[in-house]
Structure formats: C-alpha cells, structure tokens
Amino acid sequence: MEAQKSSIEDDYQAFLSIQVERYLKRKTQQRFCSEAEKDVINQIIADSWTEYRQTRNLSQIDTEQKIRSYYSFTLVFPYFVAEEECIISFDFRNKCSLEGGDECFCNSGVPYRQCCGGIKSLKDLLKGSF
C-alpha cells in the first residue's frame, strides 16, 4: 500500500513538472510572476490530475508510456496578462529617476507617489480614468 502511494505521488510529480514546464514556456519571462498565479496554476494542474487518474489505469503502463501520456494530455491554462514589472519612474527633463517621496515632475508640488505615480483607485480604473 505504501509503495502504491509513493508511485502515485511520483506519477503526480512527473505530471506536475510537465504541465508547469508547458505553462511557463508560453510566458515571456518563463517564470511565475506572483504566488497567486502559481497557486492558480497548481490548482488547475491538481484538478486535471484527479480527472486524468479517473480516466486511466496507470498501474498497467510503464514509466515511458506514462510520460508520453502526460505530454499528450491537453490542459487549457488561463492567460495571465498582469505580470509584475519593474517600472522605473524617470523625469526626462531633469534626467533623473524618481522615488515615491520626490516632488512630482508635473510641477504640482505634491510628492510623486501621491500625484502621477500614485496607485489608481478601483473606481477610477473601472471608469477608465488614468
């Protein structure tokens, strides 16, 4: 029983590795951009693994056949467009980068973080106010 559990876990790890690799190859930076994205993808794979195991008898095939089967299993992943970016705020007129507490380059007299570099509210984003 313990050997069977270990074999099932090994099979899942192989399936997981193949599917994560497939997902990350589609992305520009080929990495997860956030823990939330990683959690969602891992949950999709885990759910697919449950479905996969219910439709196939893995104990009847050898490792090489299993691997081929994992690669041939089509999994539809959501497309994540919100990737974390490293944005460098720059004042081109004064030829310097801006920090959150620096005076805003628009000459409002307000710190950059509270003016042009501020986080927009959900209400503004939904209205399209940028």
Rank of each mutant, 00 (worst) to 15 (best):
S48D: 14
D39C: 03
V110C: 06
L24E: 15
K127G: 00
A46Q: 13
Q19F: 06
T50V: 13
S34E: 09
K25F: 13
Q19M: 13
S108F: 01
Q30F: 04
E37Q: 12
E85W: 01
R56K: 05
C116P: 02
E84N: 06
E99M: 12
K66I: 04
L75G: 09
C115I: 02
T55W: 01
D10R: 08
I61N: 01
D39K: 13
C116F: 00
Y12D: 14
V110F: 05
F77V: 05
G117Y: 03
V40R: 11
I67A: 04
E51D: 12
F92Y: 13
T55G: 03
F90E: 10
E84C: 00
A82F: 02
I8R: 06
I119V: 13
F32W: 09
C116A: 08
R56V: 03
C96P: 00
Y79E: 11
S129I: 02
Q13I: 04
D39S: 13
G101T: 14
I18S: 12
D39A: 12
N57I: 03
Q30C: 08
K66W: 05
S69Y: 01
S6L: 12
G101K: 15
D124I: 00
V76E: 15
Q19D: 07
D124N: 01
S59P: 00
R26M: 14
Y52W: 08
Y79A: 03
N107K: 11
